[in-house]
């Protein structure tokens, strides 16, 4: 079975235990959650999550349906195949001496990243972009000696004008789409 990386977007109630309920459904099938990012949404009391998991399309679809059943979950969509914007933020602390600092700053500029903290023997870089961009930056910085990395994991959104997750009732069209399964 071919596994691929899936990006799920979930709109959930901002209540204790929601994350646990959702994570539990992935754990049951031994899915490793690659990243999960949660924050407030445009609707009061609702949070939006971006979950990245690796799995077969059928298995991810099954989990998506079960996530949708969690009472505190308003809606879950798999936007993997959609035209989407995906971003991640990383903080990278790199060893920097007076002789290497300028070279590091040059690289940071090329990546349109920022230096957010400078110490006598290190600099901390803030970078935003897709995973590839962050990984390339990390590769270039590795030679200087990386002291610490903190990454947010992916946040994502479908392109276009419409909000991807209307809170109101699903349209009949969306329902029919949800019912379709492959042979």
């Amino acid at each position: 079975m071919v596994t691929t990386k899936h990006t799920l977007i979930a709109l959930v109630e901002d209540k204790p235990g929601v994350l646990n309920r959702m994570a539990s459904l992935f754990r049951r099938r031994s899915f490793n959650i690659e990243s999960i990012a949660v924050g407030r949404s445009e609707v009061p009391h609702l949070s939006r999550m971006t979950i990245v998991v690796d799995g077969t399309t059928t298995m991810v679809e099954q989990v998506r349906k079960q996530l949708d059943k969690v009472v505190d979950v308003i809606k879950v969509s798999d936007i993997t195949g959609d035209d989407m914007i995906a971003r991640e933020l990383a903080l990278i602390k790199v060893k920097a001496t007076s002789s290497t600092r300028s070279e590091i700053i040059e690289i940071v500029d090329i990546f349109r990243a920022n230096i957010v903290d400078v110490a006598s023997d290190s600099v901390t870089i803030e970078v935003t972009g897709d995973e590839d961009k962050i990984n390339s930056l990390l590769n270039l910085l590795r030679g200087f000696g990386i002291k610490e990395i903190s990454r947010t994991g992916r946040i994502a959104m479908a392109r276009g004008a419409s909000g991807s997750l209307p809170v109101e009732k699903k349209s009949p069209k969306a329902q029919a789409k949800g019912q379709k399964t492959s042979r």
Partner: peptide
């Protein structure tokens, strides 16, 4: 009545939730 049952174990040609 449960959409999560559709296609879970067996291929389905016409699901009706």
């Amino acid at each position: 009545i449960d959409p999560a049952e559709i296609g879970k174990n067996v291929r389905v040609d016409v699901p009706i939730v």
